[in-house]
Amino acid sequence: MAEQVALSRTQVCGILREELFQGDAFHQSDTHIFIIMGASGDLAKKKIYPTIWWLFRDGLLPENTFIVGYARSRLTVADIRKQSEPFFKATPEEKLKLEDFFARNSYVAGQYDDAASYQRLNSHMNALHLGSQANRLFYLALPPTVYEAVTKNIHESCMSQIGWNRIIVEKPFGRDLQSSDRLSNHISSLFREDQIYRIDHYLGKEMVQNLMVLRFANRIFGPIWNRDNIACVILTFKEPFGTEGRGGYFDEFGIIRDVMQNHLLQMLCLVAMEKPASTNSDDVRDEKVKVLKCISEVQANNVVLGQYVGNPDGEGEATKGYLDDPTVPRGSTTATFAAVVLYVENERWDGVPFILRCGKALNERKAEVRLQFHDVAGDIFHQQCKRNELVIRVQPNEAVYTKMMTKKPGMFFNPEESELDLTYGNRYKNVKLPDAYERLILDVFCGSQMHFVRSDELREAWRIFTPLLHQIELEKPKPIPYIYGSRGPTEADELMKRVGFQYEGTYKWVNP
């Protein structure tokens, strides 16, 4: 592979701008107003304001973009700056750019259920340069409990009458099928589907988006991507930290609602779906819905739930269990780990287990898709061969690698495990991989909904998990304890083995 010439960040961002501006969906010269509902909250200060700053800094926003914060707290732009700027990672050389960014910011205080507050917000936006005809993007960085009041008031008082209007809704989209349907029906009564952007930030990850290209742009994968060759698929999300004093919020939802029903299920769809007619948003989402419709409700015998306990040999936070978090209700049975087996009941995947695993306070930070292939028929190497695996590593250190057998150097035919490896950090030294939120917010500006969740996708996802969630809430089974920093409950490994996964433990990928 030829040595790549190092590029400056300015040059890299210039390439990104060229890609972005050559499309006809990006209205570079139009006025846009980006409204952050819930501007005083954690999500706004840690993710949304920093993301908008990065896009502005790199010249990736339309030229005439204004940012308006809205929340109940009586704040000023200076207050917003004070709480969000520490997350910007701005350099001293960017000081003038930073001043320009905050000059485009404003803030309006108001209630979430008060019509007069929204009329005041609308008047404020109209007073901005060309504000009355601007395109408006409303980001709901809010708890779902206020979605209905907020969307109703936005629709009645704050819509642009000339430009387009788009609304970005953060997960969780309800707690179960019934609450999700209620919320979807409410929002759909106010906005068209092409105006609604239900954001799952995992769909903005580079390697998640790469799944489609790997599958449908490489001839070698087509013939082997089926039940005849693939023994099982494992989708993993692991965090090495616990709730760390923020367990009160987590306890309301648990690990299945927080990660599995959305992030992991979306990745499953991209692995299992048929080739779409095109890369058009609805063509892709149509195929994802077909996959979900082929999955039956989760069966309790295919589920393992766990909850982390303190590690007596650990240090600091590792010595504390979930129930030691003062914000967690006493005696909570909320799971911090889950392993679930699903089956896609169609011709391509009949009988292939899709194993979804996620948890907190585990032994490493990792998100990946792992396809394990069947054993080689007619073994001539005296059971020395391990199964081939194709691994798409989402985070950290984005990579695609194939675990395969090669001859060990020497005189004899002794096979050993090795890999074919594409590590993004080595291959793409001159490429700026956008943060997931950067990519998705740019998608909203461009009107691309491919990486957002459609209402029928959402409904099918909740259909699969709601009976299990209701059973857990009714019966309150005690989750299996696992030690902070471990791989999780051993019962999860036993479940995976029972459905056909072979864990060798003899080879570990190392970032080159």
Rank of each mutant, 00 (worst) to 15 (best):
Val213Leu: 08
Thr65Tyr: 05
Thr145Glu: 04
Gly110Arg: 03
Ser40Val: 02
Leu140Ser: 08
Ser84Leu: 12
Tyr112Ala: 03
Asn135Gln: 09
Gly242Glu: 00
Asp100Cys: 12
Gly69Glu: 02
Arg246Leu: 03
Asp100Ile: 07
Arg182Asp: 15
Leu190Ala: 13
Asp113Gly: 11
Phe88Glu: 02
Asp228Val: 09
Gly14Asp: 15
Lys152Met: 14
Gly174Glu: 10
Ala44Asp: 00
His186Ala: 13
Trp54Ile: 14
Glu85Lys: 05
Asp42Leu: 00
Ala78Ile: 09
Leu142Asp: 00
Cys13Ser: 15
Leu96Lys: 07
Met37Ile: 12
Lys47Arg: 11
Gln178Trp: 14
Ile255Glu: 11
Ala6Lys: 15
Val169Ala: 12
Tyr197Phe: 13
Ser179Met: 05
Ile168Glu: 02
Pro92Thr: 12
Arg175Gly: 08
Leu130Pro: 15
Thr236Ala: 10
Val213Phe: 10
Ile230Val: 13
Leu130Tyr: 11
Leu203Ser: 01
Ile48Ala: 03
Pro240His: 12
Gln133Ala: 06
Gln119His: 09
Tyr139Thr: 06
Leu98Val: 12
Gln209Lys: 02
Lys205Val: 03
Ala103Thr: 12
Arg227Gln: 07
Thr151Pro: 05
Gly110Ala: 07
Met212Ser: 01
Tyr70Asn: 12
Val12Cys: 15
Val213Ala: 12
Ser106Thr: 14
Asp30Lys: 10
Leu137Glu: 03
Gly110Glu: 06
Leu183Gln: 01
Ser84Phe: 04
Ile67Arg: 00
Val108Asp: 03
Asp194Glu: 07
Leu211Glu: 02
Ser84Pro: 00
Ala141Leu: 04
Asp58Ser: 07
Asp24Ser: 08
Gly242Trp: 01
Ala109Ile: 09
Met37Lys: 06
Tyr118Ser: 08
Arg57Glu: 04
Gly41Phe: 01
Arg215Thr: 00
Leu130Gln: 14
Glu148Val: 13
Asn210Trp: 01
Phe250Cys: 05
Phe138Arg: 01
Tyr107His: 09
Ala39Ile: 06
Glu170Arg: 00
Arg257Gln: 05
Ile187Ser: 04
Ile187Asp: 02
Arg219Lys: 08
Asn218Ala: 01
Gln195Trp: 07
Pro144Ile: 01
Thr243Leu: 07
Tyr107Trp: 11
Ile255Thr: 06
Asn64Glu: 07
Thr243Tyr: 05
Tyr107Val: 07
Ala103Arg: 09
Ser160Thr: 14
